[in-house]
Amino acid sequence: MLFQRMTDWPTWGGLRPFEELERMRRQMERLTEGLTRGLWREPISGVFPLLNVTEDKENFYVRAELPGVKAEDLELSVTGDSLTLSGERKIAAEDENARYHRREREAGKFSRIVTLPAQVEPAKVEASCADGVLTVVLPKAEASKPKTISVKSS
């Protein structure tokens, strides 16, 4: 350590007084690094349901995992570039005499609005629910589709 060398700090029997501090600082660094990595890995909004949005040349695809939600309990509406998804997850009550060992599944209402990066055609939006996964296909509006421009050589 530079400081130690400059002041000719005594080393007590091979123990360096600043080594412990240095080790703690490194540990703290590793801890905060781990924390932020965990936080930024998945930027989630915290609003139910969590959504995955993908796109190809023609469409946007919005997917959500909604196990146990029936199609009739879901409400979707599209305007311009935003999709509103709301509904309710119901869990039917079971036999009154049933003794619960575990209860991890939750029921409740949800509503979420997601803004898409471009305009879509609301009339052509299609939604389907299979195995508890909702898929909404939103065709892009003509104006927001990518166009190929050929370069002319003179």
């Binding site: 995955n52 993908t54 796109e55 190809d56 040349k57 946007f60 997917r63």
Partner: peptide
């Protein structure tokens, strides 16, 4: 994986 070929991620909240 539910994504089709040629789909690019815009937002990914669940894996």
């Amino acid at each position: 994986p539910p994504e089709g070929p040629g789909e690019v991620d815009v937002l990914r909240e669940y894996r």
